[in-house]
Design a protein around this nucleic acid. Structure first.
Lengths: 125, 125, 125, 125
DNA sequence: GTGGTCTAGACCACA
DNA sequence: GTGGTCTAGACCACG
């Protein structure tokens, strides 16, 4: 009866998110080769099929392209990467704002909260 | 090897968070009585022991007091409630800011992102 | 060394095509329930995972919707069904026209050929 | 139980079709010599026996003649070539019309569909 | 070597 | 009962 409390993203999505992060942060650049399915599977301690799904998902989204017999590569299309960055950003903000509103904070409360947070951060918390 | 991908908070903490929320939002006010351990256990579909830990945790933090034979009550000390609100807020902001920085956003990027988000929210997404 | 001569669509796609046909022909109507993954797997003599992929693909395309714990259903959106019909039609025509041009027929040859074909069909070939 | 989903023409027929195409398009003219069985086998990456069957099939149909010690030649009989062209055309049209009718299209739907297709083709897709 | 598909069999969450 | 995810291990086509 504990189901309600698990709510984790599927592993193949978590791994995709991790790759998305690397791309958005520039650790993986346009045109870079990703690890092979099998290698990534070992790195992640996961079955190759799961990585296959990850790569499939990322290709569907257009952030990655596969060249037959050669491997999987980050798209050359910088626009797609920028769009991805925006999309991930919005996703995170949505979750954050929702949590804050559940605590009873208004939009301006939220902004003030973050500004305050940055101020303390600067002063060595 | 899959443990790495689960990363869920313990259930008793999740339930505590939920109660904290109700307190901070004023749904549960200073001095209000919480449901009994057994009742809460049924409501949450969880073992009473788990709720016992939840209540223990909340008492440790001082946000709740148990009066023997009477039940568990929200603290009368409004300061503690206010502090709780701030603490929860900071916790959420920390996670949020960390995620945003992992995507390569600076402090001012973050503020601009949220302002933009609120602007779109107002215009009906 | 015979690889070049196989060139078959993956099974999960072939099954999807078959379902698309049934939908387009009206044998499966908007809102109808598809067989369960397991049942369809038995009917098709295929592993349930393969059907899962078929259903996943059809959902991605938006022609099918899954209701958790209840099953998979043809979309209620008649527009999507109409679009599907057009897409399948164009796909078939493309293959056909390509074959005809490989035989050296021009566009008007092709039209005349089909008209002639229909004429004979009517006269009891 | 997967046999049902393969449904590929035998290789020797696929190769025959390819030769038929060349003849019908005039790339191979009446009286032209075909490559030797061995050469063709290498070109196609196929066992010579397979090509032997291909040539046998084409001879049976009368589109090709073998002169002992000299090789295999396209028939001198232009009528047979013309007939072949018509037969191949009808074959393709049959398959096409069948597919379209399986999608629920009528004869006039089909004609309109192709005309529309040509119109778009001309306008640069 | 690469990615892509398929099977067999397992477990999970939702309703 | 439903669909969804995951593993293990196999085979294929492409370059």
């Amino acid at each position: 009866m504990t189901e309600e409390f698990l709510a984790t993203k599927p592993i193949y999505m978590q791994i995709a998110d991790r790759v998305y992060q690397q791309i958005v942060r520039g650790e993986l650049k346009a045109g870079d080769k990703l690890p092979s399915v099998r290698e990534m599977a070992i790195q992640s301690g996961v079955n190759p099929n799961t990585i296959q799904r990850t790569y499939g998902e990322m290709e569907r989204v257009g952030i990655v392209e596969t060249k037959r017999g050669q491997g999987t590569f980050v798209t050359e299309d910088q626009d797609k990467i920028n769009t991805l960055k925006v999309k991930l950003q919005i996703e995170i903000i949505q979750v954050f704002v929702k949590s804050m509103k559940e605590l009873g904070f208004s939009n301006s409360d939220i902004l003030r909260g973050i500004e305050e947070f940055f101020r303390r951060e600067k002063d060595g918390h």
